[in-house]
Design a protein around this nucleic acid. Structure first.
Length: 114
DNA sequence: GGATTGACCGGAA
DNA sequence: GTTCCGGCCAATC
C-alpha cells in the first residue's frame, strides 16, 4: 500500500485527523476553541499535533474557529480569520496596536453554556 | 527504520 | 506590553 500515495491524495485523513476535523466542525458560529482544548476534548494528542492536522486537512473545516490559547488566529492566516470573525460576530478584544484577538473569555467553546 | 518540521502551550527574563 | 526557551505530539521527508 502506498503509505504516502494514499494520504498524499489529500482525500483520506488519518484517524486522528478525522477526530480533529469532526470536532472542529461542531464548533458553533461566534465561538472558538484553542488547539490545546481540542486535544484535551479528544483525550489524545497535543496542541502541536492538532496544528499539524489543521495545516494539512483543515481546508475542509471552519479552521478560523480554531485559535491559539491567546485567542490569536493561526499564524499566517490572521487576515482571513478576522474576516470570518467580523461576519460571524465573534467577540474580539484588543486594539490595532496590541493586535486584535478573540475574546476567549466569551467565545471559548465548549463554554459554561455548552 | 530515523530525523525534521509545524496553523502550539506555558512559563521565565 | 514583548521575547526567548524547552516540551509536547502527530505528520512528513
Amino acid at each position: 500500500m502506498a503509505e504516502r500515495g494514499d494520504r498524499g491524495a489529500e482525500g483520506l485523513p488519518t484517524p486522528f485527523a478525522e477526530d480533529v476535523l469532526d470536532l472542529v466542525a461542531q464548533i458553533p458560529e461566534g465561538r472558538v476553541a484553542a488547539y490545546g482544548d481540542l486535544a484535551e476534548l479528544l483525550g489524545s494528542g497535543g496542541a502541536r499535533a492538532v496544528g499539524t492536522v489543521m495545516a494539512r486537512y483543515g481546508s475542509d473545516v471552519p479552521w478560523w474557529r480554531v485559535v491559539r490559547s491567546d485567542g490569536r488566529p493561526p499564524q499566517g492566516h490572521e487576515k482571513t480569520a478576522l474576516e470570518h470573525y467580523r461576519a460571524e460576530g465573534t467577540p474580539l478584544v484588543g486594539s490595532l496596536l496590541t493586535g486584535r484577538r478573540v475574546d476567549m473569555t466569551r467565545a471559548r467553546w465548549p463554554g459554561p453554556t455548552g
